[in-house]
């Protein structure tokens, strides 16, 4: 009897989790796909979803922290940061295995530097984050074009092997990113920094009056977001056989979409990391499903839009009670 009540309470608590809906949607879409293919390739599709979802999650974590800072906070420079960091690190590594650590540090440093630049624009020049990060993305995208001139340099062989390796069907990179997500969950909920981010997002003025270092927290968040974008550019270049000028393009919307579909509040002050994974898998599986059904491009795009609206409405309906 007591056990049944505990189970019921657990089920209720689980249903209250905003991230549940993203995972449920991902599962349903996957199910629809393998019903269509009569069970063929279900495991491989999941494996591919994990591999490609990884990149959205890495940039999604940074974007989620930024968005959680409250209304108006968003980083639009993620694609340019990825491209710049990817191009710079690939060029410096010059396919040498011995340079991988140096390349990684370069990518992270590029990201961090762009983050500092972004926050400089926001704080010192008092430019709204949307405008500041958009304009800095022009600067760094152009820098990447000038630096790389469209040159696609292959990653060092060991890096390419590492980023595409799988253990029992699970991409190693995805496992690493799950660990990263766990760490960032602990940081969000258990550290002074993480709680400051949430407090600022809920009410920046109250946070400031209660003695939270608002400026410093925002600074750290923008730098971290850009650094993660740099990391993503680095591993994505390894995964896809080199850095290209348009490699970051799809991550502008993807980084925001996984945050929103994952159940994080766009208004800030309320974040959750597991939802990023659910949303990233959902986004990949959705495209796969529509491709598998063989629908025309127009219908595919309309369906994508409608399904995303449905998921956000269903998931958002729960959190408005808060």
């Amino acid at each position: 009897m007591a056990a049944a009540r505990t189970a019921a309470r657990l089920a209720t608590r689980l249903l209250e989790r905003p991230w549940l809906w993203a995972f449920a949607a991902a599962f349903l879409v996957w199910l629809a796909t393998i019903i269509f293919t009569k069970g063929q390739g279900g495991g491989e599709i999941l494996s591919a979803a994990l591999a490609f979802g990884t990149f959205s999650v890495i940039v999604g974590i940074g974007q989620m922290y930024v968005i959680t800072l409250g209304p108006g906070n968003v980083d639009l420079s993620i694609p340019a940061t990825m491209t710049f960091a990817g191009a710079a690190s690939m060029k410096i590594m010059a396919t040498q295995d011995s340079m991988i650590v140096v390349g990684l540090l370069i990518a992270l440093a590029c990201g961090a530097a762009i983050g500092v630049f972004n926050y400089g624009l926001i704080r010192l020049m008092r430019i709204p984050p949307i405008i500041a990060t958009l304009s800095s993305s022009f600067v760094f995208q152009s820098a990447a074009i000038a630096y790389g001139r469209g040159i696609k340099i292959k990653p060092p062989p060991s890096l390419a092997d590492f980023t595409t390796a799988r253990i029992a069907g699970f991409p190693i990179l995805a496992i690493c990113t799950v660990i990263l997500a766990l760490v960032m969950t602990v940081v969000l909920h258990k550290t002074v920094y993480g709680r400051s981010v949430i407090a600022i997002g809920q009410n920046a003025r109250a946070a400031k009056l209660s003695g939270i270092a608002v400026d410093f927290t925002r600074f750290v968040t923008y730098v971290m977001c850009a650094t993660l974008a740099g990391l993503c550019g680095f591993v994505l270049s390894g995964f896809s056989g080199g850095a290209s000028l348009n490699m970051g393009a799809e991550f502008l919307l993807a980084s925001i979409a996984v945050v929103v579909i994952g159940g994080t509040s766009v208004a800030g002050g309320f974040a959750n990391i597991p939802g990023l994974w659910g949303a990233a898998l959902f986004m990949f599986l959705l495209v796969t499903m529509l491709n598998t059904f063989g629908l025309g491009a127009g219908i595919r795009l309309v369906m994508t839009g409608l399904i995303i609206i449905t998921v956000i409405t269903v998931a958002g309906g729960k959190s408005t009670d808060r």
């Binding site: 269509f36 599709i45 591919a48």
Partner: peptide
């Protein structure tokens, strides 16, 4: 190249 890789990887198992 990267978008194609992603799209093909998704549809290939089916």
């Amino acid at each position: 190249q990267d978008v194609s890789q992603k799209a093909v990887a998704g549809i290939l198992p089916s």
